[in-house]
Computed example of a mutant assay.
Amino acid sequence: MKRVGSLLTSLALGAGLLVAGASPAAADAYDCRTWYKSSTTAAGTCVSGTGEFRVYTRCNRPWAQDYTVYDPTWRRVGTTSTAICYSGGKPYGAGIQVH
């Protein structure tokens, strides 16, 4: 009978740890949007949550391979993040990466 009680206690503690471990994910940045700030720059912001985020975009270069750029800095909620295409690239397909 002691083994059954011990097993049930272990299961209850394990379930409690799973629930506690899930709470930081709720802190991720959300309520985000992106836009094109200029012909070479994608921008974005998140207005809710407490995590960090950054903008990324694909860049189209005529006569060359497309590439992806990320804002090198993780930003706090409520600020603006930008990703800049270089070498004549034009941004398209912007998105937000949360951290």
Results as ranks from 00 to 15, higher is better:
Thr50Pro: 06
Ser6Gln: 14
Glu52Arg: 05
Tyr86Pro: 01
Met1Gly: 14
Val77Ala: 00
Ser81Lys: 06
Thr82Pro: 00
Thr45Cys: 08
Cys59Val: 01
Cys32Asp: 04
Thr45Asn: 10
Asn60Tyr: 13
Gln97Lys: 12
Cys85Ser: 02
Leu11Ile: 15
Tyr36Met: 06
Ala22Val: 08
Thr82His: 02
Lys37Tyr: 08
Ala15His: 07
Ser87Val: 10
Tyr56Thr: 11
Ser38Asp: 08
Ser23Asp: 13
Val47Glu: 13
Gln65Ile: 14
Ala20Ser: 14
Gln65Arg: 11
Cys46Asn: 03
Asp66Pro: 13
Arg33Phe: 11
Gly88Leu: 04
Asp71Leu: 10
Leu13Gln: 07
Thr82Cys: 01
Tyr70Trp: 09
Ser87Ile: 09
Val19Met: 12
Ser6Thr: 15
Trp63Ser: 15
Ile96Asp: 02
Tyr36Asp: 12
Ala43Met: 03
Pro91Asp: 08
Gly88Tyr: 08
Trp63Gly: 09
Tyr70Glu: 04
Ala12Gln: 13
Ala43Pro: 01
Leu18Lys: 12
Ala42Tyr: 03
Val98Phe: 06
Gly89Ser: 02
Pro24Gly: 01
Pro91Val: 00
Thr45Glu: 13
Pro62Ser: 15
Ser39Thr: 08
Arg54Ala: 04
Thr41Lys: 02
Thr9Leu: 13
Ser81Gln: 03
Gly16Lys: 05
Lys90Thr: 13
Ile96Gln: 02
Gly14Leu: 15
Thr9Tyr: 03
Ile96Gly: 10
Ala20Glu: 07
Arg58Gln: 14
Leu8Asp: 06
Ala29His: 03
Leu18Cys: 14
Ser87Met: 08
Trp35Cys: 04
Thr68Met: 06
Tyr86Thr: 10
Gly21Lys: 04
Tyr86Trp: 14
Gly49Met: 03
Gly89Met: 04
Val77Met: 04
Val19Asp: 04
Gln65Asn: 09
Gly78Ser: 04
Tyr36Cys: 04
Tyr67Gly: 03
Thr45Val: 00
Ala25Asn: 09
Trp63Leu: 14
Asp66Tyr: 00
Ala94Arg: 01
Thr80Leu: 02
Ala25Trp: 10
Ala27Gly: 13
Arg33Asp: 02
Tyr92His: 05
Val55Trp: 01
Asp31Arg: 08
Asp31Trp: 10
Gly5Asn: 15
Tyr92Asp: 06
Trp35Pro: 05
Ser38Gln: 08
Gln97Pro: 02
Gly89Lys: 00
Trp74Tyr: 11
Ala26Arg: 13
Val4Asn: 07
Gly89Phe: 00
Leu7Pro: 06
Thr40Asn: 07
Tyr70Arg: 05
Ser48Glu: 14
Ala25Leu: 15
Ala83Phe: 01
Asp71Pro: 01
Gln65Met: 14
Cys85Arg: 00
Thr79His: 07
Leu11Asn: 09
His99Asn: 07
Gly51Ile: 02
Arg75Cys: 03
Gly51Lys: 06
Ser6Ile: 15
Cys46Gly: 10
Pro91Arg: 03
Arg75Ser: 12
Ile96Phe: 03
Ser39Gly: 13
Ala15Lys: 11
Ala12Trp: 09
Gly49Tyr: 07
Cys46Ile: 00
Tyr67Phe: 11
Cys46Thr: 11
Thr82Phe: 07
Ala22Trp: 05
Trp35Leu: 05
Pro91Thr: 06
Thr80Val: 13
Val19Cys: 10
Leu8Gly: 14
